[in-house]
């Protein structure tokens, strides 16, 4: 009975959509990279970097949107580095990605400590405030749940639609899908594999960084070590869960976030009877189960993780 009441409360849905937002950005970013044939394990570090850069900019007095922009640029820089290694040099995408994650996260922590050497309670900034969309937010229940969010959340929903349109309805989307499926055929069509893959990885990395920036500029109001806490890896699981399709990625992110929101509320309700660690574990366990269920049906992009070298068959 109690848990049904939990699901009916509008706060639960507001929280679900809030938790889903960074996952939507991150999953979409990873999806874009993988659709072009590049696995981007740099996601966890790029999210950390985005979270730091966004927060640091605003902490130094920049506008919130400038913070988001700078975060996206930082993400693009690391995306460019990853594509230099994996697209142009054809290095192992696994190891390069892990290297990018370690580098980006540790650089973020390094500069955080340079900025604030001895602070134990991280200083706060004024984050994005919820923005009720006129008229739409008046719709009973749904209006409050969906249309009283912070601006970046609306941006995430719009971005999903744009990404789906781009991927399936435009020449550039077709090119991205082609280089991820059959690069040799794409090359025969006169498509530059290297440029398209780099483009996808750079844009995708910008999305990942915005996912991180959402956490510091919208969800929380400060940066701290281990802020991302595996969200990037969960995005990688969500991409597989979504079979590399933007709208399914949105669905997966919402489903996962709903599960997380429920877990948080159950934790408060049940309290000390069950160790809190068990609740915190549930999202990760849920991801592994979801992966296992979907794995057989997953339609991997055929050229995922296959480096392309001109003239090699």
């Amino acid at each position: 009975m109690n848990s049904i009441n939990l699901l009916l409360g509008v706060e639960f849905w507001v929280a679900t959509i809030r938790i889903a937002t960074p996952l939507m950005f991150g999953t979409l970013g990873e999806l874009l990279c993988e659709r072009a044939g590049v696995l981007n394990l740099g996601i966890e570090g790029i999210m950390t970097m985005g979270a730091f850069v966004g927060w640091a900019a605003v902490y130094q007095g920049a506008d919130l949107w400038i913070g988001v922009l700078l975060a996206a640029i930082a993400g693009m820089v690391f995306g460019l580095l990853h594509s230099l290694f994996t697209v142009y040099l054809g290095l192992s995408q696994h190891v390069s990605g892990i290297g990018i994650t370690l580098l980006a996260a540790n650089l973020a922590y390094f500069f955080y400590r340079v900025l604030l050497p001895q602070v134990n309670t991280p200083p706060k900034i004024t984050p994005f405030q919820p923005f009720a969309i006129p008229l739409l937010s008046q719709i009973p229940f749904l209006g409050k749940a969906v249309f009283t969010q912070t601006p970046l959340t609306y941006a995430a929903f719009i971005l999903v639609a744009i990404a789906a349109y781009l991927l399936y309805r435009t020449p550039i989307g077709l090119a991205i899908r082609m280089v991820g499926e059959n690069p040799s055929a794409a090359e025969a069509q006169g498509i530059n594999i290297y440029s398209i893959r780099t483009l996808a990885v750079v844009i995708g990395s910008a999305f990942m960084a915005i996912a991180g920036a959402f956490l510091t500029l919208s969800a929380f109001d400060s940066f701290f070590v281990n802020l991302i806490n595996g969200r990037g890896w969960i995005c990688i699981a969500l991409v597989i869960f979504a079979s590399w399709q933007p709208f399914k990625a949105l669905l997966g992110a919402l489903l996962f976030a709903g599960f997380d929101a429920l877990q948080l509320r159950l934790q408060q309700k049940i309290g000390a009877a069950i160790p809190y660690q068990l609740f915190l574990m549930l999202p990760y366990i849920f991801s592994i189960i979801a992966l296992s269920v979907m794995a057989r049906r997953a339609g991997y992009p055929k050229a995922l993780m296959v480096p392309f070298r001109k003239g090699e068959r």
């Binding site: 595996g230 890896w233 990688i236 068990l278 915190l280 574990m281 990760y284 592994i288 296992s292 057989r296």
Partner: peptide, 20 residues
């Protein structure tokens, strides 16, 4: 058995073990 990518599962297990 079912072709689940080991990168994601091993990464996620790290977080589970830390909670244990």
């Amino acid at each position: 058995r079912i072709q689940v990518d080991e990168v994601v599962t091993t990464l996620l297990l790290n977080f589970i073990v830390l909670l244990v």
